[in-house]
């Protein structure tokens, strides 16, 4: 018989799925619906980011560039090579996956600091290339991607909402499977202590590389779908360092160790972003707000809101901790320091 908490979890997932699927029918107008598409798009991106960020603890600020690459590959294949839209999307996913191999080879050979530097450089170099190489990419004039369906605008939003939701389900499922696997265990050991993981025989380099490629493919698919939905690509927005930071903010805010953490974060941050756009327009204030929120999360809530809520529930509910549970290296260190302080 399944335990109470398991039932509760399943019910929560079912509720979430119903809410996601029902949204297009209850959205009052096409604008709200398009905002919903954007939020689900962010949720896919944040979940894809979390393959690297959540499992290995390597923070990538450059996932926006991978999404941009997926978008542009799809767009160019459709607009210039005349491929059918969804074939182009699949090809773009495969292409970015292949491209992620050399990037990962260079970025993951050493530890986190170099990885962050490479991830930021990726955004900056791709912005340069896509702005300057205008014969292929359209340069700063942008690239117009023909729409895959001849539909009215609300219908178009509705279809893409479900496409994004499907991709989200796929990404969440993949994350869940990896989380439960031996492979996932190896990745988490890298996150907690890479030296010890290596000493115990984990093929850390290969593990990191594989999960980076998986993450890149999902990110590129989301970006490609965005290209087909939005229909107009501009290098400044596709290769923006801000996109990458939104993803990090969403995943951290929700909780990187939680399956649905990035989705929850995308809901909060995505809605906040739309709200800001409506209220304040194109002022630099959204930079201030993003920076402030990111700093607050990093300083005071690095584990995210979901664990914070879980802690709150635990405090009021009865304590049912089992002897086998995940403990992070940071928690262990704190315990050790407390014990040392106690025996002094």
């Amino acid at each position: 018989m399944p335990s109470g908490s398991k039932v509760l979890k399943l019910a929560a997932v079912a509720l979430l799925a119903v809410a996601v699927l029902a949204f297009p029918s209850i959205a009052p107008n096409p604008y709200i619906l398009s905002a919903g598409v954007l939020v689900v798009y962010y949720a896919v991106l944040a979940t894809s980011w979390n393959f690297v960020g959540g499992f290995t603890g390597y923070i990538s600020l450059g996932h926006g560039a991978l999404a941009g690459l997926g978008a542009y590959s799809t767009g160019i294949l459709v607009a210039k090579a005349g491929l059918p839209p969804f074939l182009a999307l699949a090809a773009a996913g495969a292409f970015v996956g292949l491209l992620a191999v050399p990037i990962g080879l260079a970025a993951l050979r050493v530890r986190g600091a170099s990885f962050v530097i490479v991830s930021i450089s990726l955004v900056l170099i791709l912005l340069l290339v896509f702005q300057s190489w205008s014969s292929v990419t359209g340069g700063s004039r942008g690239l117009v991607v023909p729409r895959p369906f001849q539909l009215t605008r609300p219908e178009h939003h509705r279809i893409f909402y479900f496409l994004f939701a499907g991709l989200l389900a796929l990404a969440v499922l993949a994350w869940w499977l990896i989380d439960r696997s031996r492979f996932g265990l190896g990745l988490k050991s890298i996150r907690e202590d890479e030296d010890k993981a290596e000493a115990l025989g984990t093929a850390t380099y290969a593990y990191k590389l594989i999960v980076f490629v998986v993450s890149a493919v999902f990110t590129a698919l989301a970006g490609g779908l965005y290209a087909l939905w939005f229909g107009d690509l501009d290098p400044v927005f596709q290769f923006s360092i801000l996109t990458g930071s939104y993803l990090v903010l969403m995943a951290l805010l929700g909780g990187v160790r939680q399956l649905f953490g990035p989705v929850v974060g995308a809901l909060i941050v995505g809605i906040a972003l739309e709200f800001f756009k409506v209220e304040y327009g194109d002022t630099p204030l959204h930079l201030v707000a993003t920076g402030l929120l990111l700093a607050l999360v990093v300083l005071f809530m690095p584990d995210g809101v979901l664990p914070a809520i879980a802690d709150l529930i635990k405090r009021f509910g009865r304590s049912d901790r089992t002897s086998i549970r995940e403990v992070s290296a940071a928690e262990l260190r704190e315990q050790r320091l407390q014990n040392a302080g106690g025996t002094k």
Binding site: V248, L287, G291, L292
Partner: peptide, 10 residues
């Protein structure tokens, strides 16, 4: 990295 990134945005 994230904290200094946030400061840069600010």
């Amino acid at each position: 990295v994230l904290l200094t990134f946030a400061i840069a945005l600010l």
